[in-house]
Nucleic acid binder design. Structure first.
Lengths: 231, 231
DNA sequence: GCTTTAATTAACCTGATGGATAATTGCTGT
DNA sequence: ACAGCAATTATCCATCAGGTTAATTAAAGC
């Protein structure tokens, strides 16, 4: 597609005239690269395709992001940044222990359900043994403050004897992420093998409730329920 | 069954003379392709590399498996077959409910820990939206009988009032798989971001216990005590 | 207006890779 | 011992895709 033919007076930006806007162009590349990487993986994603979809030349991609891997890292940074931002809107501190745990579970589940591209991206990065995360200072310092929130919820819950004292924030976070991510990431093999729907709204609602239940039953104090001898 | 076993030994096999053994060659290709696919993904795996490692010509790969995708399907079939085989050695029926659940949890966790290539392969297949599983009759009929085992454990547990009546076998299986797979598949991003070890023997032991705990606390009846106290 | 700089484009290069063609060679039954 | 066939090899090829070289052009400053 050739650009630069019709020249509109441009109250708004005409789509076919290349506006020289560094930041906007970079952002567009990033967003489309995000989608392409999530869809096709690090190797499968294609610079020509990204350029075509962004309406720019391939060269421009390498101009702003020096290599495919650098672009991938930038995409990861953006994707993780969005999650982090979403997590900031969670305010668990004000809630009672059970409500806080359930809200945390449902929020995490919802986020992954709503952002399957992000889940795919994380899976892809894990296939590559997280070598891009390892290479990015930004991504490592981006260690999510969600752990802090969880710790506070647990502390409060333990104080109130609603939550078992042994429960660890990291472990809880891992468990919750495992359940939430799995229901998006491994949906396909599961559905194909068990003919078990994981994608319909009803199925999702069921899983959402299930995960909250698993989590709460895991953390809640035994005193509030059956007596039990621990290992 | 081919008459391959009637081959005369021809002395000792010189390493550089290709032994004409259809089944053996196919099996070798499969095993090496399994490793290469698990390591590098569907696109990343390289036919030349597989051939080189197997000590054969690339052409031979396409002779036995008509395309790369077919080879990948064959690899999936082999890998899932192995898991299924392992699952057969589980005998949960004889155990008491809690013991059965814990054994199931630990077995599943161990299997994934011991077969990270399998876990990677499943992740890769999910990135491809399980289109190869969908294409293979074999893989779909290979629906694992583990579900049956779980159902029997749950039925017995419910009978004894040790397990809640609402617990579903599929959901339980999904939960367990989520936790087990996650601790292998998403280990890398997790470790990189949280500087949290998931790979050392101690960490694995901790996770193993954790998962059994999560599972049991999820299924156990609210009324009954864990010591199978019938009222 | 002219210069300078930075954003953008067009065209090219090159290594890799899946797959194809065709020749060859070892096994097995007769 | 030899034909026939199946297993295996050596080579070639077209295409794709990441990255590069060099020219072009929009905008900001003087």
């Amino acid at each position: 597609m050739t650009a630069a033919s019709t020249r509109k007076p441009a109250g708004d930006q005409p789509a076919n005239v290349r506006r020289r806007d560094r930041e906007k162009t970079k952002a567009e590349i990033l967003q489309i690269a995000f989608e392409e990487f999530a869809e096709n993986g690090l190797l499968g994603a294609n610079a020509d395709a990204i350029a075509a979809r962004a309406g720019i030349t391939k060269r421009l991609i390498f101009y702003y992001f020096s290599s495919k891997e650098e672009l991938f890292i930038a995409v990861l940074e953006m994707a993780y940044g969005r999650m982090r931002q979403a997590e900031e809107s969670l305010h668990l501190e004000t809630l009672a222990p059970e409500a806080a745990i359930r809200r945390l579970a449902e929020f995490t589940f919802d986020f992954h359900q709503d952002n399957p591209e992000f889940v795919r991206l994380v899976a892809i990065e894990n296939i590559h043994r997280a070598r891009h995360v390892a290479r990015s200072e930004t991504l490592q310092q981006m260690t999510r403050p969600i752990i802090g929130q969880i710790e506070r919820v647990l502390a409060k819950g333990k104080d109130l004897r609603a939550i078992r004292p042994e429960v660890d924030a990291h472990a809880l976070h891992a468990t919750l992420n495992a359940l939430s991510i799995f229901s998006v990431a491994n949906r396909h093999t599961f559905e194909a093998q068990f003919r078990w729907d994981m994608s319909s709204p009803e199925a999702k609602a069921r899983q959402r409730a299930e995960i909250a239940e698993v989590l709460w039953r895991y953390v809640r104090s035994d005193a509030a329920s059956p007596a039990e001898d621990e290992d």
